[in-house]
Design a binder for these strands. Sequence first.
DNA 1: CCCAGTCGGAACCGATCGGTACCGTTTCGC
DNA 2: GCGAAACGGTACCGATCGGTTCCGACTGGG
Lengths: 180, 180
Amino acid sequence: MAVNARARLLSTAEALFYAYGIHAVGVERILSESGVGRASFYRHFAGKEALVTAVLEGRDARWRAWLSERVAAHGGHPLNIFDALAERFSAPDYRGCVAITTMTEIADRSSPARQMAALHKTRVVELVEQLLRDADVPEPAARAKQFALLMDGAIVTALREGTPDAAWRARGIAESLLAA
Amino acid sequence: MAVNARARLLSTAEALFYAYGIHAVGVERILSESGVGRASFYRHFAGKEALVTAVLEGRDARWRAWLSERVAAHGGHPLNIFDALAERFSAPDYRGCVAITTMTEIADRSSPARQMAALHKTRVVELVEQLLRDADVPEPAARAKQFALLMDGAIVTALREGTPDAAWRARGIAESLLAA
DNA sequence: CCCAGTCGGAACCGATCGGTACCGTTTCGC
DNA sequence: GCGAAACGGTACCGATCGGTTCCGACTGGG
């Protein structure tokens, strides 16, 4: 139990932030659920905000790796992005995107957490653009921004409806974009 | 100063919840900025959650009235929805949609605030559907759901980018949907 | 004119917030 | 096997959380 305190803090915090939001989860709860001592926490992180930023950074990397993998598994076409999203939306405890949550919960645009959330979205757009390029879709940069808007719209809609329907709806819109 | 305590509470709370989120704003701050006494607050509302719900209800009505009015001012076509959104997105202190914020901040789906937020989105879809019907767009119900997804995507994207560009992007997507 | 209703202000409650300091223990490299 | 580093636990800090209670002032209708 005395090793990997940092890793346990990160995974526990990520699960709690995802499920309940950032402001709703106190340091106290993260400590008790991770089994990490109070002092150890402040040895690894400058404070709660640093933990939030680190969680966002880790989630960014793993989320994009997951998306790449699932898109490839579904055939590798950019439209398969929405098949991947549908998998996530089907989870009964789906709670949206932590980056979006961060943007709604933290008003200060210059905050490290906000900037990390913005960076995540930028990187996702780049990933989508590469997928479009690989599929020889014309004007991949403009298309990627459109796809990103559809992805965010689907995520928010799925959070509201609690079903994967929004992924299919977004996929249909994306299809008609590519057909035009 | 001794009149309209309830109305002052609602408008102050709405401004603060919009700007900083729900969990980040304490009752204390709402009281001091509205000039309402602590006791008066609990005479008018059962608690913070009741205030949140009341704010969401009022905002729902005014937001839809505003959208109807702006769409009409822009010509009355369903595509003018995105012209209206662009106006909002241009505000330097634009902070997204309180209903979306509520859904990300409050995990409990059965909470009155969450249900009010969900009701708002349902009513917006109905409004959009009516606009589509008035414009003789085929399959208005399905189109309305697509438009709603584009609207939510645009709102989240605008919150991230801080520019009205997302409204034009969503409008472009909506145009190609209607052209197909 | 007076009284009932509404109001703002303040004291107070237990709980929790993020953060600091100190303690004794466990682990691991040398 | 010894010392340094990392660890979990606890007590404590001022501030704030949402909520209750009481009080004095102001206001408007009969």
